[in-house]
Design a protein around this nucleic acid. Structure first.
Length: 405
RNA sequence: GCGUCGGUGGCAGAGUGGUCAAAUGCAAUUGGCUGUAAACCAAUCGGUCUUGUACCUACGGGGGUUCAAAUCCCUCCCGGCGCA
């Protein structure tokens, strides 16, 4: 399923190909997030044209709406959404965090950082967010309340895999618990051990049902296990060893990290996981993270950042992010980037984009998302090529210098 | 011309003697967003500095009453409506 074509000297980085029932993914690859069977503000044609190879949907969201039975009847996720290529589904494990500990707070996957908006949260807001959490976790699984209508639903590892089998993505993930970056060691450990037990159950359920779940092409879904352990080295190592021994087709690395320790953590995790199998870094994908991940053995990424920040006027450029809504761009008739080959840069000016955002035109999101996704997808492609050309470190140094200067 | 209602911060619009540098909405400015409760969230939004239960300038202009006026009185200017 996974073929390694070239390795980075003295490092874990590599170029490869992952064969799925719906096509080959050339790795390293950036997987575009399309949570609810749609990449927000874009058509599948636009997603394809900007160079994306695969799309990742979400089990929790698609189960609630429209329901996995409907997607199954439609012939699977990619047929349903008219995406002509490989698809992934996340297991819903991230929602254990985002609708639980992360609910109503400004926490993210990296180490909790105090900022002004955290201070401004008053006591009643905090109490409120604790009381309105939408999940409850126990050994068997997680009780979710629908973020749409508040109704109760219970996810177990078996249930998550069953739903993912119905949705029919090429690559599915074991049900895990994504833990808040602010969690204590003991809780992180407890959650990690539970994730390991859930991994085993996900695998068992999938093996028992695997034969009956065949994709339209006749091929089977790939199931990835997820390494947890947060920012703690001993937990990450333990998790990599345990999950790595299980018979998964590939691995996801999930949870939270400390920003400074990302490279080290990914290195020892990927060093412990089976080298011949594909590794996916879940939910991370800022430019610097991509270089760090790829250098340390990550084969694919997914991240909402390019599309999410695009919708609020933030654009990636080689010299860092810019906010296109700022006054200085309202009379700037140049392109976002002169040498960018994306549809947006080839046809529109900064002034026009700035206007669309101020006027709250929906097309603003579309044009900005195309640029940002092209930027990131293309960056990963360039990194891939640089490994083939043995120029990875030159590209890394040149790019990061410009981007963060 | 007479009568009547009204003129509040960039805009709309509350407030009708002290707790008003003035609710609220919009706009604006700044910051944030990493397996999408996200076309979102937060802060700022008259000026000064020693950043305070601080000072100054402000609710069409001018004058007055009062310890105290966006708020009451007089007058002028401007606008809507009605009647000539």
């Amino acid at each position: 399923m996974f073929k390694i074509k070239k390795k980075l000297k003295n490092k874990l980085g590599r170029v490869g190909e992952f064969i799925t029932p719906n096509g080959i993914i050339e790795t390293p690859a950036f997987i575009v997030v399309g949570t609810k069977a749609a990449v927000k503000s874009l058509s599948p044609e636009q997603v394809g044209n900007l160079g994306a190879q695969a799309v990742l949907g979400n089990t929790y969201h698609l189960y609630l709406q429209p329901g996995d039975d409907i997607i199954k009847k439609a012939g699977g996720l990619n047929k349903f959404m008219n995406w002509n290529g490989p698809t992934f589904t996340d297991s819903g494990g991230f929602q254990v965090f985002s609708l639980g500990a992360g609910f109503g707070s400004n926490e993210n996957k990296f180490e909790f950082q105090k900022n002004i908006s955290n201070h401004s949260l008053n006591i009643s807001d905090k109490v409120q967010s604790v009381h309105t959490k939408l999940v409850k976790i126990n050994e068997d699984g997680v009780e979710f309340r629908s973020c749409i209508d508040g109704s109760r639903h219970f996810f177990t590892p078996e249930k998550s895999i069953e739903i993912q089998n119905n949705i029919g993505a090429d690559i599915i993930f074991a049900f895990d618990e994504c833990v808040s970056s602010s969690a204590e060691y003991n809780y992180q450990k407890e959650a990690m051990e539970r994730t390991h037990r859930w991994a085993k159950r996900s695998l068992n359920y999938n093996n028992n049902h695997r034969l009956e779940v065949q994709l339209s092409s006749g091929n089977k879904q790939a199931l990835f296990g997820i390494v947890q352990g947060g920012k703690f080295e001993d937990l990450r190592k333990k998790s990599a060893k345990i999950i790595g021994k299980m018979d998964f087709d590939g691995f996801g690395i999930g949870g939270s990290f400390s920003k400074e320790g990302l490279d080290k953590t990914l290195h020892f995790v990927n060093d412990l996981l089976p080298k011949e199998k594909i590794k996916h870094l879940l939910g991370i994908g800022e430019p610097s993270d991509l270089f760090i991940g790829i250098e340390n053995g990550i084969d694919s990424f997914d991240c909402v950042s390019p599309t999410r920040i695009a919708r609020t006027g933030m654009l990636y450029t080689k010299h860092g992010r810019i906010n296109i809504i700022k006054v200085k761009y309202s009379r700037d008739f140049s392109k976002i980037e002169d040498d960018c080959k994306c549809y947006t840069c080839e046809n529109y000016t900064k002034a026009y984009l700035s206007h669309l955002f101020r006027a709250q035109e929906m097309f603003a999101s579309t044009l900005a998302s195309i640029h940002n996704l092209y930027f990131i997808v293309n960056l990963v492609k360039n990194i891939r090529q640089s490994i083939l050309d043995e120029k990875f470190y030159e590209l890394k140094e040149e790019f990061l210098k410009k981007y963060y200067e």
